[in-house]
């Protein structure tokens, strides 16, 4: 559902910009005090518990984002089962033997540069992927015939509850950075068919495609929904009131912590 709404709001400005011309301009943007960014995840699989800590930089600087090193990062469930994450590379903290269980609530605590940030997330129950179906369309683009390969995912939604999904697509060994999320609005309890598009890199015949189906929490879904509006790669700033996605961390840290269940399936494009 969400995708079509997005399509609708995108098509109108798109039509305009077809007629228009663009140029790179120099905008004098203010410098902002660096802010802590935390990206944390835990699934029901091993080696999934990771927390990445970095900082904001000014817009005109090159994309070298400073890692926050030497932080104390812990994870605990509601019954007190706890682990301390170790820094494997600068700014990346992991606890490879800590694994989540669906239904439990997990809390991450980060102590970095004299401040403490916490976030909690309840792990949703997993949903299996029934099938992955390869799809191919050819279309005419400015007189040239182009082919687009993609896959369609099918899974059974759980009835009587609001479900939120995130899809991760791996093309051979590359994980797509495309934000692909969906919910079961209008399709509660149905077998959901969903096309997965990730244009970069383009999918060729013979490629191995892996799709991960994450069941996520509403606040994480909202986070990614808002994130896709402000990602600079997607021409962020089209919205009238762009803002930082709402973080579930306390004490002003931006980012998210998501406890999710995940199932996956693999296919080779014929």
């Amino acid at each position: 559902m969400r995708k079509y709404i997005f399509f609708l709001s995108a098509i109108i400005p798109m039509g305009l910009t077809q007629l228009a011309c663009t140029k790179v301009v120099d905008i004098n943007l203010n410098d902002a005090a660096p802010k802590t960014i935390i990206e944390g995840g835990l699934s029901d699989k091993l080696a999934s518990c990771s927390v990445k800590i970095s900082k904001t930089i000014n817009f005109d600087q090159p994309n070298d984002f400073p890692a926050v090193t030497g932080a104390l990062v812990t994870i605990a469930d509601e019954f007190g089962e706890q682990a301390t994450l170790t820094e494997t590379t600068p700014g990346l903290y992991k606890a490879d033997f800590y694994r989540g269980t669906a239904g439990k609530t997990y809390t991450v605590t980060v102590y970095a540069e004299g401040k403490t940030y916490t976030a909690s997330s309840t792990m949703a129950y997993p949903i299996a992927i029934d099938t992955l179906i390869p799809q191919r369309i050819t279309f005419d683009r400015f007189g040239k015939t182009e082919t687009l390969n993609y896959v369609k995912i099918q899974y059974q939604d759980t009835r009587w509850e609001e479900n939120y999904y995130r899809f991760i697509e791996k093309i051979n060994r590359t994980i797509s950075t495309e934000i692909m999320i969906d919910n079961d609005m209008l399709r509660d309890g149905n077998v959901i068919s969903q096309q997965i598009y990730s244009e970069n890199p383009p999918i060729q015949e013979g490629d191995t495609i892996t799709v991960y189906l994450q069941t996520i929490q509403k606040d994480v879904f909202n986070y990614f929904s808002q994130l896709s509006q402000v990602t600079s790669q997607d021409r962020g700033g089209q919205s009238a009131a762009p803002a930082n996605p709402t973080s579930n961390f306390s004490n002003g840290a931006l980012g998210y912590f998501s406890a999710y269940s995940v199932r996956s399936k693999k296919i080779i494009i014929p």
């Binding site: 301009v25 905008i27 943007l29 203010n30 410098d31 902002a32 660096p34 802010k35 960014i37 990206e39 970095s54 900082k55 904001t56 930089i57 000014n58 817009f59 994309n63 984002f65 994980i175 950075t177 934000i179 990614f224 994130l227 402000v230 990602t231 600079s232 790669q233 962020g236 700033g237 009131a241 762009p242 803002a243 930082n244 931006l254 980012g255």
Partner: peptide, 27 residues
């Protein structure tokens, strides 16, 4: 208008960082 005052890295992408609502001006 609201323009970013910075940026950060999230989910494999560069994301704009905003500090205030309508703090900038169009030309």
């Amino acid at each position: 208008v609201t323009f970013p005052s910075g940026k950060y890295y999230m989910n494999g992408r560069v994301v704009n960082y905003y500090t205030e609502r309508n703090g900038y001006r169009m030309p």
